[in-house]
Write a protein that binds this DNA or RNA. Structure first.
Lengths: 161, 161
DNA sequence: TATTGTTATACTCTATAACTATA
DNA sequence: TATAGTTATAGAGTATAACAATA
């Protein structure tokens, strides 16, 4: 995700997108493409670019040492197999490491590495800034409003109170 | 996209997602996963499931006979090569057909088929309903608010007035 | 018997670049 | 020289199901 959608051809100015005009899922899905591409550009070369989940995983492991993969998987809406590959990747990049849980030897505990912690510092700067920059044309109060509503949606989807 | 994220493990109720808590792009990207999976389930077997773009393409071709691929590509944030494959697929499914433009023989014009028009009827019912159902817990006035703001974002991104 | 995480596979989407044919 | 669309390819993400180890 990093290629802009090509230069504006002659798009009729009065084009109407039918029922999608009032469909929230359409805007979520379409804006997702644009914002994800932009984010990938900003993160270029940083080992957390591409796809959803690496950034959240890095921050959660940094904030909650020993957190379990299945907990993160749930919060980023991935299944365990996708989560496993995400962790493989991040481990290979030296960002996090796994340990077997002493309490339950089926389970794992995740810990941040020095490189991971350093990257987390960068990510905490870049990621919120990218979002603000990308949506700069939405006034701050409106942005806050949308965030509040979508936060509730997110928490409901993953079952947080 | 159709597999739910696995049953809630023991996720601490007070977990905090760091800077992402206030980052619009995070919510757009994460909710996109959930709503897209749900939409795919609702569209199962309908030839427009999976990925972004088929639905918009179908409706635009139905509404604007002779519309050109590059115009749609621009509106759905794809490049021409991705658009081409999308059209291949939809043509194979008998939903649309291509013609060479009489005015400019480099360009194509897209037209809906009978099957495509019939599917468009179904899609106009299912897609907005899926969105409303999925976000049922967001009060209508708030949903309207979010849609208005994201519509402006979308139009700005693709350069519509 | 249920759970945690792994592996394997097939499919799709994405990004890129090189190509043609027309203009 | 620029544009519309095509083709080819490499890389990632996604969905599934089957599996091992442990509880």
């Amino acid at each position: 995700m990093s290629k802009p959608p090509a230069k504006p051809p002659t798009v009729p100015e009065d084009i109407n997108i039918d029922v999608l005009e009032d469909t929230l899922s359409f805007y979520i899905r379409t804006i997702n493409l644009a914002v994800s591409r932009d984010l990938d550009e900003r993160l270029e070369g940083l080992d957390v670019a591409k796809g959803t989940g690496k950034i959240t995983t890095l921050l959660l492991v940094d904030d909650y040492p020993g957190i379990r993969p299945s907990v993160i998987a749930h919060l980023i809406l991935k299944d365990r197999s996708a989560m496993g590959r995400l962790i493989d990747q991040m481990e290979q990049h030296g960002l996090i490491r796994r340990e077997v849980s002493p309490e339950d030897s089926r389970a794992q505990e995740l810990y941040i590495t020095e490189a991971g912690a350093a990257l987390a510092v960068k990510v905490r700067e870049i990621v919120p800034k990218q979002s603000r920059d990308f949506f700069f044309f939405i006034p701050e109060d409106e942005q806050k409003l949308v965030i509040d509503i979508l936060r509730r949606a997110y928490r409901r989807i993953v079952g947080l109170p």
